[in-house]
Write a protein that binds this DNA or RNA. Structure first.
Lengths: 161, 161
DNA sequence: TTTGACGTTGACGTTCGCGTAAGTTTGTGA
DNA sequence: TCACAAACTTACGCGAACGTCAACGTCAAA
């Protein structure tokens, strides 16, 4: 799944920053946190294909809501592995827990997509200056419920009557 | 999709805080940002079923990485709607863009799940003190590549040779 | 009436993920 | 050799999303 580049490729900080749409500062920051360890040519950083793969994973992790420290833990898998069996078990538990969080999140993402699409349909119908169709209304019911939370206090429905 | 509670239900700040596993401070903060407007009994906040639904959406939005201001925009859909056609079109574009981000994210989440599961399988085999099977190795290839990024600098592979 | 749980409003503190100078060093072409 | 861009280190700053007091009000039970 990692983009195919020659395994002996080398990259400058600027190249990778541009490719992944981050600033050089960001990559130095990740290095400072111990998440990547590019080699040096003099003082200048040289990134390998493996460094590049790590950066990909870091950014992917970020997009799904992991904190950098959590991503670091994932990246340090083999460090855990080499650290003896006592560290393996708690790590396994944390990984398992994270997977559950991610599965919850997958559901959240799909709901969010559905909700935004419902809102979108609603807005598009408004744009065409017609009152929303029954079909759109049905799919946008969540939004209507939410809208009421905003409208009711002003339109006066105090004691549930 | 919103949890079924009687539409005339009322909640205290602590009830909802407990239910959603946030602190009361958090709910007051959302209110201060104009995302929820619970009514008052004296000075105390009373949350309606609709308020509760909004809180659900806020937290769901957070879990998928939306900033509070973005969530507020979603919650203010009908405000946008009532604000005239000029505000509708840019809003539609932002919504569309967000949906694309979410779809990207759905892919990221599934990759992350797969990677964590691969890592998990790897660790479990280590636990049983056998060398990972070929099958696990195949699925964990991404991890191996990442591991090399850490190991190579120490094991000495300086000029790509 | 006092206790104690629960609630309120400020206001300042904290963590995360970088941004942004400021000043220095390094490498490359004219 | 000079100039200039690009990279480097150091360090302070910032916005988001709350946490954490402090100081006070309120209401039911003892």
């Amino acid at each position: 799944m990692i983009k195919p580049v020659a395994p002996d490729s080398e990259f400058t900080i600027r190249e990778l920053a541009q490719e992944f749409d981050v600033t050089p500062r960001t990559l130095r920051f990740y290095e400072q946190k111990g998440m990547i360890t590019p080699s040096r040519r003099g003082a200048a950083r040289i990134y390998s294909a493996a460094d590049r793969a790590r950066i990909e994973l870091i950014l992917r992790g970020k997009r799904v809501g992991f904190a950098l420290d959590e991503i670091k833990e994932i990246l340090d898998l083999e460090a855990i592995d080499r650290g003896g069996r006592e560290r393996l078990e708690p790590a396994i538990e944390r990984f398992t827990a994270r997977i559950q969080v991610l599965e919850q999140q997958r559901e959240d993402v799909e709901r969010a997509i559905a909700e935004l699409q419902a809102g979108l349909a609603w807005m598009r119908e408004r744009l065409e200056d017609r009152t929303p169709s029954d079909d759109v209304r049905r799919r946008a019911r969540a939004f209507e419920a939410l809208a009421q939370a905003r409208l009711d206090p002003w339109s006066g429905a105090p004691s549930a009557g």
